[in-house]
């Protein structure tokens, strides 16, 4: 289908943008790169009367180092992230995750802000208008049933953005700007876990995500992002995991973060696994135990074409490998 009709605004600064947002309360959509939004609108999953483009706000396009932080404007494209010298050097895991999003044709326009704000997905939801007309409207699309779980008024659509696990592992926080208020919150707190309105902006906070702030990792921090998908381009992650580890001199781990995408309605951090690993010496056995524990914290539902069990198996494989990679533990045969 072609795009529905809307009125288009291109504010030239943040103030103008937030004014429009409060004026159009509930009837607007924000467009960044548009790679997700355009599809949603063609599928009539979003029918905003107004579109507000962030293209012409230069302040959102910078990447800079400030004190001990790296600050990334939300309108940087994923290509900008991949090609940024600072990010390459200081935030390799983010670079890796950004590089694995979609295909090159998407990364040239898709933004990091759009990736953070990406709506959750489901095989019953991300379909055309015609497709959805075969069935009763599901919760996420405004109805009351869920075709996955048959429950009422609950949605388990899946969070699948690639860059977010890396950002959370790096302890990123974000800046949200409303018409008369600016707030900073940790990225993990941005997500609600409710498949219907998976983040605060989608829940209707009338804010713009302006920047991401990441404390520059100390030298003793190592991190990786591993993504599993059927084809190594175009596809969304079936499961993705970012693993960050601190202080692995002598194979003793001072701190670690394990954050998943693709396995729940929000990014999922394996907290028990974290507790388990802190202070321990990394051995193949410990890695197996920690990975198993991490996976026990995951409860994927069948929102795509792979079974939840299969996804858990993949999560296990990815975490084990990631832990070995950052921990410098090589078991020879599985790598």
């Amino acid at each position: 289908m072609r795009l529905p009709e809307f009125i288009y605004h291109e504010p030239e600064n943040l103030q103008e943008a937030t004014n429009l947002i409060s004026e159009f309360n509930g009837r607007y959509g924000i467009i960044a790169g548009g790679t997700d939004l355009m599809v949603k609108m063609k599928q009539r999953l979003q029918n905003s009367q107004y579109l507000i483009s962030l293209d012409r706000i230069p302040a959102l396009k910078t990447i800079k180092e400030k004190a001990d932080n790296i600050i990334i404007g939300s309108m940087n494209t994923l290509d900008d992230i991949v090609n940024s010298e600072i990010i390459k050097e200081k935030l390799p895991c983010l670079k890796q995750a950004a590089w694995e999003v979609g295909s090159p044709l998407l990364r040239s326009v898709a933004t990091i802000g759009g990736n953070i704000c990406l709506n959750t997905r489901c095989r019953f939801y991300n379909q055309s208008y015609f497709w959805r007309s075969s069935r009763e409207t599901c919760c996420k699309a405004g109805g009351h049933v869920c075709h996955v779980t048959n429950q009422e008024d609950a949605c388990y659509s899946t969070f699948v953005a690639d860059t977010v696990p890396a950002l959370i592992a790096y302890d990123a926080s974000i800046k949200l700007v409303g018409v008369d208020k600016t707030r900073k919150l940790s990225l993990a707190d941005f997500y609600t876990g409710d498949g219907r309105m998976p983040n605060q902006i989608l829940k209707g906070s009338n804010e713009i995500l302006t920047e991401i702030e990441i404390p520059i990792p100390k030298d003793d921090i190592r991190s990786v992002y591993h993504k599993f998908r059927v084809r190594e381009s175009i596809d969304f992650p079936l499961v993705g995991v970012a693993v960050m580890m601190k202080g692995i001199e002598e194979k003793h781990c001072q701190d670690a973060r394990v954050v998943f995408t693709g396995v729940g309605s929000a990014p999922v951090e394996a907290k028990l696994a974290r507790e388990k690993i802190i202070g321990q010496q990394l051995t193949p056995d410990l890695i197996l135990e920690v990975a198993t524990m991490a996976v026990s914290e995951l409860h994927p539902v069948k929102t795509d074409l792979m079974s939840p069990n299969y996804k858990r198996g993949i999560a296990q494989v990815l975490v084990e490998k990631a832990l070995r990679d950052v921990g410098g533990v090589n078991n020879g045969k599985d790598d």
């Binding site: 095989r123 084809r231 190594e232 969304f236």
Partner: peptide, 17 residues
């Protein structure tokens, strides 16, 4: 009902394969 009527979900080979 066809669940993967798109190049995203119907997985035809890409260059990397």
């Amino acid at each position: 009902q066809l669940f993967n009527a798109s190049f995203l979900n119907y997985q035809i080979p890409i260059s990397l394969e």
